[in-house]
Every structure is written in structure tokens, then in C-alpha cells.
């Protein structure tokens, strides 16, 4: 896809050109356990929305004084967004919803940033609602989102970490689900998909065991537009489909904790 667009947009100039993956060679993994040395917002109030979504936050006017319209907040988070395929797919479906991709690998984040800028330049007025940030979402979810801020969270084709000693590096775990449940509003949905059966079982059992998540019934999934994107929108998903691989999906809803 990037190839075709690239040739047609060449005349638009430098900024409109989609970035090419070959210049963003990144390693497949990054250690989530290591100390992070990139900037992290101290709290959700510190997240600079105008930098991410200039269209929704036009310039730094004195918006603070006339708080007539409530400022929009990020509602979707794609954790480990990779090359950003899902964000690009979701953007036109929810043009008024702010979404963010979170990626730990520096170069991949750079690529997504460039990709979004190029898409915005080539399609004025579109793709204004997506952005990306380099962060370790296993550590810093509460630094970006307030309690109950998100309505959807995506975990598509995460790192499987097969070895048992590395299971604690998996992005879905019973402990981390506490934090995801905190960031999700009641009724919010967590989407997970993988092509690794073992990881699929793991993610499903974590979600099943967590008292604040409940499986979304199959018929609801069929009506959900987003579900269709899970397996085909991302680069990783396309690769699996190309190779005729199987995928394992677990979609759960955040529910109130029953007392007791």
C-alpha cells in the first residue's frame, strides 16, 4: 500500500510522502523491564493534546478561561501499535474520537509519526484524530489516562514471550489488567488478538479470571465494526493472513466489580 501511495503523491512534495518502512528498520523487541529514559508526563493533566491533535486543539488560545465546550479526551488506546495500521483503519470510522497509539520502539514510533503527518497532508481534514507516543504502556498507563477515560483498548498481536521466565513481560497479565480496568470506563471494551495459540489462551484466561472483565457475546462481536479491523488492519495481521495463519481473539467488556 505504501508503495502505490508513494508514487502517486510524489509531486505533493516532501511532507506528503509516506514514510518508507525500509528506512525505519527496528528490532522486533524492546525490553519493557528496563528503565525508561524518554520523557513521560507526570500525570494525565500534563499530556499535551495540542501537539498530538492540532486540528482539535487549534493553537494555544486562552481556552482555559472560556471553558464552554468540554475539551475532548483520548478515548481509544492502541497498546503496542506497531506500524499504526489499526489507527489508520479506525480513524475514518470514528472521525470525532481521539485515539492514540503507544509504542515502545523508538524507530517504529518515528515511522508512525511520519505516516500520520503524511496522511494528514495528503488528505486534508482527515486523520486528525490519531496520534502516537513512544512510551512503555506496561509502566505508564496511569500517567496518560485518567480513571475511566478510555472506551476501547487494543492489544493486537503482542509479543508472545514464550519462555516461562519471560511471561511477566507479557502485556496482558492479571496484575496489568487492574491498570487497564482503571483506565477503561465501565462498559469499555478491551480487544486482544494473536496468531499464537498459547498466548491466545493466556490472554483469554487472564481476562476470564479478572473480576472486572466479562466476555462480549459472539453476536455482539459480529455487529461490531471494529472487530473486523482486528485481523486485517494491522501489518502483523496482514502478514498472518498472507501466510494463511489462524488467529485467536478475546474481546472483553469492563464491568463493575461485584462487591464481596
Amino acid at each position: 500500500m505504501s508503495k502505490n501511495n508513494n508514487s502517486t503523491m510524489r509531486q505533493n512534495g516532501q511532507s506528503a510522502r509516506l514514510p518508507r518502512k525500509r528506512f525505519y528498520r527496528a528490532r522486533a523487541h524492546s525490553n519493557p523491564l528496563s528503565d525508561s529514559h524518554f520523557p513521560i508526563p507526570i500525570s494525565p493533566a500534563d499530556v499535551d493534546y495540542s501537539q498530538h491533535y492540532p486540528h482539535f486543539f487549534p493553537s494555544e488560545r486562552s481556552d482555559h478561561d472560556n471553558g464552554s465546550t468540554p475539551t475532548p479526551k483520548i478515548r481509544f488506546a492502541d497498546i503496542g501499535c506497531g506500524f499504526g495500521g489499526l489507527l489508520v483503519g479506525l480513524s475514518p470510522l470514528f472521525p470525532d474520537t481521539l485515539m492514540i497509539g503507544m509504542e515502545l520502539r523508538d524507530k517504529v514510533t518515528e515511522y508512525v509519526k511520519e505516516r500520520i503527518l503524511a496522511l494528514r497532508a495528503a488528505n486534508p481534514g482527515r486523520y486528525e484524530n490519531i496520534s502516537v507516543v513512544r512510551t512503555n504502556s506496561m509502566k505508564y498507563i496511569p500517567n496518560y489516562f485518567e480513571k475511566g477515560q478510555l472506551s476501547k483498548m487494543f492489544f493486537l498481536f503482542p509479543d508472545p514471550h514464550f519462555k516461562e521466565k519471560n511471561h511477566r513481560r507479557r502485556v496482558i497479565s492479571l496484575q496489568l489488567l487492574d491498570e487497564y480496568a482503571y483506565a477503561l470506563e465501565v462498559g469499555g471494551i478491551i480487544y486482544t488478538i494473536t496468531d499464537v495459540e498459547e498466548l491466545g489462551d493466556w490472554m483469554r484466561s487472564c481476562l476470564e479470571d479478572h473480576p472486572m472483565f466479562k466476555a462480549v457475546p459472539e453476536e455482539e462481536l459480529e455487529a461490531d465494526l471494529v472487530v473486523k479491523l482486528l485481523s486485517f488492519a494491522t501489518e502483523e495481521g496482514q502478514k498472518v493472513a498472507r501466510n494463511g495463519g489462524q488467529t485467536f481473539r478475546a474481546v472483553y467488556r469492563r464491568i463493575m466489580l461485584e462487591d464481596g
Binding site: P142, K147, D178, E179, A181, Y182, H210, P211, L257
Partner: peptide, 12 residues
């Protein structure tokens, strides 16, 4: 059975 419900984070 686990303490899953986070009331808040104090970040500063």
C-alpha cells in the same frame, strides 16, 4: 482473591 479495583493514582 486479589485487590483489583484501583481507586486512584497519586502522581506528582
Amino acid at each position: 482473591k486479589g485487590a483489583h479495583e484501583i481507586q486512584s493514582f497519586c502522581l506528582g
